[in-house]
């Protein structure tokens, strides 16, 4: 009596063919997907920047400055303090602006509002704005990321 065949030649060849097609697809798609993925550039990590001159900002005004690749905001509060935040809204990445009339930080995209501590007052932003440390060194206002 012939033992029951575990794997026929036809089934074996069929699996081999299917496997081959899958391998070919994988070998074609993998380099394409890798090609599409952005190249990681050597982004310089900026931790501190001279955001403005000491006498540059009048009371109750603000300025957007470059903090590496992203915008930051330096505010001269009505109380005379200098405060700095990330100017990127925590909702959907728009750049915020300072509303001098209401003394709040405002995002024009979806009407998000932050107080002068970066905390959300109203609107859809889920988190406060990232705050930075502000120091005055000579004539310069130096803004730095808080050390972790």
């Amino acid at each position: 009596m012939c033992p029951k065949q575990f794997l026929t030649r036809r089934a074996f060849l069929r699996s081999l063919l299917k496997g081959g097609v899958l391998a070919l697809l994988g070998a074609t798609l993998y380099p394409i997907l890798r090609y599409l993925y952005p190249v990681k550039g050597a982004e310089s990590v900026v931790t501190s920047v001279a955001a403005a001159k000491v006498d540059e900002l009048a009371v109750n005004t603000a300025k957007i400055f470059r903090f590496g690749n992203r915008p930051g905001m330096l505010v001269h509060t009505p109380q005379g303090e200098l405060k700095a935040f990330s100017a990127v809204c925590t909702h959907l990445n728009c750049t915020v602006q300072y509303d001098e009339d209401a003394s709040v930080i405002w995002c024009a995209c979806h009407n998000g509002k932050f107080d002068l501590n970066g905390q959300v007052i109203s609107g859809p932003p889920p988190k406060p704005l990232e705050s930075y440390q502000v120091n005055v060194r000579g004539d310069d206002v130096i803004v730095s990321k808080a050390s972790v």
Binding site: T95, C107, A108, C109, N111
Partner: peptide, 23 residues
């Protein structure tokens, strides 16, 4: 890229319903 987002920013009209929902 380093200017504040101006007021009145909106997508094309066919995405407005989603924009308003998000707002």
């Amino acid at each position: 890229p380093f200017a504040p987002t101006p007021a009145g920013i909106a997508p094309e009209w066919y995405f407005l319903w989603m924009f308003q929902t998000l707002k």
